[in-house]
């Protein structure tokens, strides 16, 4: 190995740098002149993030307007098609929130709901993702399972409540089962979809680099399907919450859904809104967790 460069220069002498092409060389972005002052840096940062700052500012304003409208509608007890006579004001909800966070019972409701989501959703992911991968890879498994899945899939998880109560010995188990069912099908279907979109050229590339069936599965099919798997997990998490709340309202004794329904029965109107907001925040938090996990697992997709 005498010369380190594989490119011997043709006689019309291309400069050696031309070989590197006009790629995204990191050095080319910032010119190494004098170090810029804090002021110019701040200005540059502002210019680069202007769109993001604008969106944040508008978002905050829009939330404040929402709270204001809510406040006005409830303090003046507006009746205009819908009746705001009994709807709690934002301040009343804030008061009951302060009371609730000192109340161990409220926290228990939330923790129980989170536990049900965790168990039901995890089971759905642990079963749904591998099943989807295997169905996508082995025709026979697909042919056997797909028809059954297609028949069961359109049944909303809530419709399973009576059947679930019969199937499972405890109430807790039937609620977890309904949460599981809600998230299972979106996860399965999206994983299958991801498998069907795997570029066959990548499989062939792996094969002629010496990869065998198991390696191709692990190194090609699985990572190639990951974006769709995560779409399935995100959708599945949303449906899991929908199913959980419905199940808790119908058959539960504890949980944030039960809390919200109980507040209506006990005429504690501020707690209804508190329950709803808690459900919203929990749903948002869990989908953010999944998005974060997705970015962690798929670093090649974040810029």
């Amino acid at each position: 190995m005498s010369s380190p460069a594989l490119v011997s220069q043709p006689e019309d002498s291309m400069p050696a740098t031309a070989v590197a092409e006009a790629g995204p060389s990191p050095a080319a972005v910032v010119r190494p002149t004098t170090p810029p002052s804090f002021g110019t840096l701040a200005l540059r940062w502002y210019r680069l993030n202007r769109a993001g700052l604008r969106a944040t500012a508008i978002g905050v304003i829009s939330l404040l307007v929402f709270l204001l409208v809510w406040h006005l509608l409830t303090t003046y007890r507006v009746v205009f098609f819908v009746r705001f006579t009994n709807v709690p004001s934002p301040l009343a909800v804030y008061d009951s929130f302060i009371k609730a966070i000192h109340d161990p019972k409220f926290l228990m409701h939330i923790l129980l709901s989170c536990r049900r989501i965790f168990i039901g959703f995890s089971l759905a992911a642990i079963i749904g993702v591998p099943l989807g991968l295997i169905m996508g890879r082995f025709k026979l498994v697909h042919e056997v399972i797909f028809p059954v899945a297609e028949v069961l899939r359109p049944i909303p998880a809530i419709a399973w409540v009576p059947m679930a109560i019969m199937l499972w010995p405890t109430n807790e188990q039937s609620i977890v089962y309904i949460t599981f069912l809600g998230s299972f099908f979106p996860i399965l279907v999206n994983t299958l979809h991801g498998m069907s979109l795997v570029d066959p050229v990548l499989v062939r590339a792996a094969q002629c680099l010496g990869a065998r069936e198991r390696s191709i599965f692990r190194e090609v099919y699985f990572p190639a399907s990951l974006p769709h798997i995560f779409t399935g997990l995100t959708v599945g998490m949303g449906v899991a919450w929908v199913s959980l709340i419905a199940a808790e309202m119908i058959s539960g004794q504890y949980g944030i859904g039960y809390f919200t329904w109980e507040a209506y029965s006990l005429v504690q109107y501020a707690d209804i809104a508190l329950g709803m907001i808690a459900i919203g925040v929990l749903g948002l938090g869990s989908s953010l967790l999944i998005r974060g996990a997705g970015q962690l697992v798929m670093p090649w997709r974040s810029t």
Partner: peptide, 30 residues
């Protein structure tokens, strides 16, 4: 197919989830 016959495709066919070095390492890893 076998690693004895290396192939280069028109569509590049690099694994998008692997870095440049991991792509090159793939055959050796196998």
């Amino acid at each position: 197919p076998s690693a004895e016959r290396g192939m280069v495709f028109q569509q590049y066919s690099l694994f998008p989830w692997k870095t440049v070095r991991e792509n090159v390492e793939f055959g050796l890893k196998m």
